[in-house]
């Protein structure tokens, strides 16, 4: 029980997110009140945490890749791959929730927005990572080469999502220097009021914990499978 507190916390936070996120009274008098954004703003509590948790798990995946290069233990490689897989699922969900939202507020699911492009690139990079992994049969070599690509890709991807949104106009909050909320590729600070913040940050933590939980389950499943076949 003591060791599982974070799983309970994750469930509580997510239940809170779903109830409060769908029921909370959206603050009146904000810029988007009159726009077609207003009620769909609730998607903010579900769409944005996907990206926070995706970034968190691919960072953990990076850490395990570095650990594997320093000390080649199979479990580090599995963790790196499993966290990357969870990140890919979260990225797909983020893209999907974003596309639904965009369909209602911007008129089309895909708008060539720099952040949509960045999200698509992340998916392509991690799918390529799995193609590379599966093309290798030697287990030790697989771990090492996949880890090298994982690290290389991460350190190119992060500067890219810092540079890309600054270069072009974006429909998302934050974007090109000088535009409203510009200069910051992430959130535009002014669009978040305290009531929303009180739901948003718990949601981020809840989703991250859930992502870690799912990954550890996958890892344990893999470890059990390995044990089953190695004893026979």
């Amino acid at each position: 029980m003591r060791r599982n507190w974070w799983k309970i916390l994750s469930v509580i936070l997510l239940v809170y997110t779903f109830i409060a996120g769908l029921l909370v009274k959206l603050p009146p008098g904000v810029a988007y009140e009159q726009s077609n954004m207003y009620e769909s703003m609730r998607n903010f509590f579900f769409h944005v945490p996907m990206w926070f948790s995706q970034l968190a798990v691919i960072t953990v995946s990076l850490v395990y890749s570095i650990k594997f290069l320093r000390n080649p233990l199979a479990k580090y490689d599995w963790y790196a791959a499993d966290f990357a897989a969870t990140g890919t699922v979260l990225g797909s969900l983020g893209l999907l929730t974003g596309a639904i939202w965009a369909n209602y507020t911007w008129g089309a699911p895909w708008n060539n927005d720099p952040k949509q492009i960045g999200a698509a690139i992340a998916l392509l990079v991690y799918l390529a990572y799995f193609v590379l992994r599966n093309s290798l049969t030697d287990i030790d070599k697989k771990g090492r080469i996949a880890a090298v690509y994982n690290i290389f890709a991460y350190f190119i991807y992060i500067p890219m999502i810092m540079i890309l949104p600054r270069m072009v106009e974006s429909l998302h909050p934050g974007g090109k220097e000088g535009a409203s909320g510009g200069g910051n590729p992430g959130l535009g600070g002014s669009s978040l009021d305290p009531a929303m913040r009180a739901i948003f940050w718990p949601a981020v933590i809840g989703w991250i914990l859930l992502a870690v939980w799912i990954t550890t389950l996958r890892f344990r499943l893999k470890a059990l499978e390995e044990k089953k076949y190695s004893t026979v």
Binding site: I121, V125, V131, L132, K141, I145, Y149, F152, I156
Partner: peptide, 21 residues
């Protein structure tokens, strides 16, 4: 990377095109 994986230019393109954007 592709050479270590004993792969051809196709793998290079898959790995590289997203990163070169």
């Amino acid at each position: 990377i592709a050479a270590r994986a004993q792969q051809n230019a196709a793998l290079m393109a898959i790995l590289g095109f997203p990163l070169i954007i």
